[in-house]
Design a protein around this nucleic acid. Structure first.
Lengths: 240, 240
DNA sequence: AGTTATTGTCGCAGTTGGTAACAATAGTAT
DNA sequence: ATACTATTGTTACCAACTGCGACAATAACT
C-alpha cells in the first residue's frame, strides 16, 4: 500500500474512498450550499476530502467541513454512499494536479475509481466563512435553485441531500442550525417553505409548531415595521 | 496497487471497502435475518463481500446477496456506511485465513481497516436457500430477537437496518417481498406488528390499508378454520 | 385619530385514527 | 338441523388534527 511513499502527504489517506459534503446555509429566504470552484480547469464541485488512516469516517467529515467553513460542532448527517463506476472520471483531477505543478504517476489512486460517502451539514450562514481548499480558487454560496454545472455526479449528490433534508425538516436541528438562535414564527415558516418548496398555511403552521413543544416563546420583538410586532421564539433546549 | 498479485483473486477487489448485508426474511410471525457461522473460529457474522474493480457498488451488493441466497431481483436498500476505527479487528480474519490453509502477508489489506457499506434486503423466506460462503460453514436464519453474538460491529449494523426497515414499513415493497404474493389482512397485520414490535388496532389497520390504495382485494379464501373466511389481497401492481 | 400590514387566536368543517358494536360466516358441538 | 364459537368485514361514534376564514391586537405611518 506504500507504492507512492514519495508523496507522503497522500499516503495517510485511505485509497479509493472520499467524502463529499453538501453544506447547507440559509439566507434571505434562500437555501444555499457551498460550492468550490477550480478556475484552472473551469470546474465546480462539492467540498470533499479523504479519510486519514487513523481517523473515524465521521471525524473525517467533520474535519473537511471545518476546513471549508471554519466552523466546529457542526450538525452533520451521513445520507448516502455513491459507488457507481460511471462516476469515475479521472480527467478533471489529472488536469488539476498537472496545472498545480504536481506530478503524480498516472496510476496513482487519486486517478482511480472512487467510492464517496455523502454528508450533509447545516451551518449558520452568518458564522461560516467559506475557505477555498488547497487546489480550489473559490468557495462560495450558491442558491440550490441556481447551481452551476457540477463535476461528475455531484449534482445527483446534491439532489439526494436535498431529499434527505426535506425528510428531516421536522427535526429540531434543522431550524436550530439554519436560523439565528432567536427567530419569529414568520421566519421559521419561511425556512420551512424554502426547504420544502411548498406554500404552507400560516395559522396551521403556527398551531402545529406551538403544539410540538419544540419551541419556547420569549419576549416581544419590535420589528420597526408598521404592524403588530411578533413574538420571538427559540428551540427548547437551546438556551445560551 | 498490485502488491499481492500472487493472490490474483483478491486483486480484483477495491481495498479497504466491504459490503455487509442484513437479509430479512419473515416466517411464522418471526422476523429473521441470515447469519453466517465460521465454525473454525467460532464466530457469527453478517454476509458480506467486496467490490470488484469493475463493478457498481449496488451490483456488488446484489452479487453478494445472490451468492448467499440463490436469489436474483432482490429488493435491496443501502442504509448506512460504517467507518469507525473501532470496528477494525483483524484477528478473526487472520485466524480464519490461517485455518483455511491460506497464507496472506500480515499487511494484506484484508487485515487492515475497513469501511463497510450496509445494505438491507427483503427476501421471500420460502424461496431463499441459504448458501454458506467460501470460508463460512453455515448460513442460517436467526430470529432478530434471538441473535448469537456477532463479529465486530455487526450487531450495530443490524440495529440500524432494523430501524431503517421500521421507518420504511409503509413502503409497498416491504410487504411485497416479505409475504407471499397473496395474503390475508390478518397476515399483513401480523407482519406489521412483528416489524414494528407494537400491537396494532385491527379495524383501523384494515381501514388504513384499504384506503392506501396499495392493496387489491381478490376472491375469498377458505382457511379451514371455524369462522368467517377472510378475503385474499395482493399488492396493486404485483400481478403474476 | 385613521390607515395599513402583519401577528396571534378562535371557530368551523373535513379528515384521520382509536374504539366498540354488530353482522357475516365457516367450521364444530349438540 | 340447530346452536355455538371464533375471526373477519363493516359501520357508528368520538377525539385529535389540519386547512381555512374571521377577527382582534398592535406598531408604525399619514
Amino acid at each position: 500500500m506504500k507504492n507512492y511513499s514519495k508523496y507522503p502527504d497522500w499516503d495517510h489517506f485511505l485509497n479509493g474512498i472520499s467524502i463529499d459534503c453538501v453544506i447547507f446555509g440559509y439566507h434571505q429566504k434562500e437555501l444555499k450550499i457551498l460550492i468550490l470552484e477550480y478556475k484552472q480547469i473551469n470546474t465546480y464541485a462539492l467540498p470533499g476530502g479523504f479519510i486519514k488512516n487513523d481517523e473515524n469516517l465521521n471525524e473525517a467529515a467533520k474535519r473537511v467541513l471545518a476546513e471549508r467553513t471554519g466552523l466546529k460542532d457542526i450538525y452533520l448527517n451521513q445520507f448516502h454512499t455513491f459507488g457507481d463506476l460511471s462516476r469515475h472520471d479521472p480527467e478533471p483531477m489529472k488536469n488539476l494536479i498537472k496545472k498545480s505543478g504536481m506530478n503524480f504517476p498516472d496510476d496513482h489512486w487519486l486517478f482511480q475509481r472512487f467510492i464517496t460517502v455523502g454528508y450533509y451539514a447545516l451551518v449558520d450562514f452568518n458564522k461560516a466563512t467559506p475557505v477555498p481548499g488547497p487546489f480550489s480558487d473559490r468557495c462560495e454560496w450558491y442558491d440550490v435553485n441556481d447551481l452551476p454545472e457540477l463535476m461528475q455526479d455531484h449534482r445527483l449528490i446534491v439532489e439526494k441531500a436535498l431529499g434527505e433534508l426535506r425528510d428531516n425538516i421536522d427535526h429540531k436541528a434543522v431550524g436550530l442550525n439554519l436560523l439565528d438562535n432567536v427567530f419569529t414564527m414568520g421566519e421559521l415558516k419561511d425556512l420551512y417553505e424554502t426547504i420544502s418548496g411548498k406554500k404552507l398555511n400560516r395559522t396551521s403552521f403556527h398551531r402545529k409548531m406551538m403544539k410540538s413543544g419544540r419551541l419556547k416563546r420569549l419576549g416581544k420583538k419590535s420589528t420597526g415595521k408598521a404592524h403588530r410586532s411578533p413574538y420571538l421564539y427559540r428551540f427548547a433546549g437551546s438556551e445560551e
